[in-house]
């Protein structure tokens, strides 16, 4: 029992000054990477095929800038369609109504099964099915024929499919509708990640299903939904290049390719495409960072760690209420 006095009297040991572990592998890696980078830079500088002067001269021209605007507009619009429709499809999928569930499942199944490129080309050619798209009473002609009226039409308004469905709108719909299927899965996972107790507590307070979803569950699901949505947006930005095959002319890749084809300088324009997409994606990455930070409100990094800690200790039979302080 004399240990207590011993420890206080004993002198503090000198701080450890050990020789750190050496990492010779790292130096080897640096050397190898250095050589590879040097080779790559050498290639960029000396190979005439890059034709840098020509590329820089062409890549900021008005048609390209118009294509850039088209690409950005397409990205934004397709994502707006994708996210809003995706939320609806996800909620339908989680509904108690079996019909809504079925419709939602079929939607997701179709749009996830068909590749985007095929979808884009298909939508670009939908004009073959209908010359005009009109809204009104369905099966109006058949109903008219049933009552002996020929050419009975009950249509409210319509537009020429050839004008509307070619180009930009077709591309937007193809990308947006396909995105909705993926977003639906993301939103569904987000909603399901919210603790069941949250819904129960809100139910016990007498809130309605919609209120619970809008005020309690979705805001918390956002934390889980936002990061993959950022990835989806970046993927969408790149996938807009697919609508060059619809074809949509007001689009970045189409325009760059057109310059390449016209001037027979194809390769520099492909490099220009790389640089443009790199730049745009980097800007989106910065935006994603700030969005994620906003939606982790109440889940600040330390708070989040504490909540996790509390979960762990509660499972272990105790509670970490101290951690919440």
């Amino acid at each position: 029992m004399s240990s207590e006095t011993d420890t206080t009297e004993r002198a503090r040991p000198e701080p450890i000054q050990a020789v750190p572990v050496r990492h010779p592998g790292r130096w080897v890696a640096v050397a190898v990477i250095g050589v590879l980078v040097a080779m790559f830079v050498h290639l960029l500088v000396t190979n005439k095929a890059f034709n840098w002067a020509f590329m820089v001269d062409e890549m900021f021209r008005p048609p390209i800038m118009e294509g850039l605007r088209g690409t950005l507009a397409l990205t934004v619009l397709a994502m707006v369609i994708g996210v809003s429709l995706g939320v609806v499809v996800a909620i339908m999928r989680l509904s108690e109504n079996p019909i809504l569930r079925g419709v939602s499942w079929a939607y997701t199944w179709f749009f996830r099964a068909v590749p985007r490129l095929v979808l884009a080309i298909l939508f670009g050619n939908l004009g073959i099915l209908w010359a005009r798209i009109e809204f009104g009473l369905p099966f109006d002609r058949q109903i008219g024929a049933l009552f002996g009226v020929n050419d009975f039409e009950a249509r409210l308004f319509g537009f020429s499919a050839l004008e509307i469905l070619t180009g930009f709108v077709a591309g937007m719909l193809a990308l947006g509708l396909s995105e909705a299927a993926y977003m639906a899965e993301i939103v569904r996972a987000g909603i399901q990640s919210v603790d069941e107790g949250q819904t129960e507590a809100a139910q016990a307070l007498g809130l309605s299903r919609t209120q619970i979803l809008r005020r309690i569950v979705l805001p918390q699901a956002m934390r889980v939904i936002i990061p993959p949505t950022g990835n989806e947006t970046i993927a969408m930005l790149k996938d807009t290049s697919l609508v060059a095959f619809v074809p949509v002319s007001t689009e970045l890749f189409f325009q760059l390719k057109a310059v390449g084809n016209r001037t027979f300088q194809v390769f520099p324009m492909y490099v220009a495409a790389c640089l443009w997409y790199l730049l745009l994606t980097s800007v989106l990455l910065v935006g994603q960072y700030y969005l994620e930070r906003h939606f982790s409100k109440g889940f600040g990094k330390s708070a989040q760690a504490k909540i996790r800690l509390r979960g762990i200790t509660a499972e272990a039979g105790g509670s970490a209420s101290e951690a919440g302080r």
Partner: peptide, 16 residues
């Protein structure tokens, strides 16, 4: 349910 208050073992406060 509005007339019946409930308190849960795990609190279930809305964290956001």
């Amino acid at each position: 349910r509005r007339a019946i208050g409930m308190v849960f073992q795990r609190f279930n406060l809305f964290p956001h």
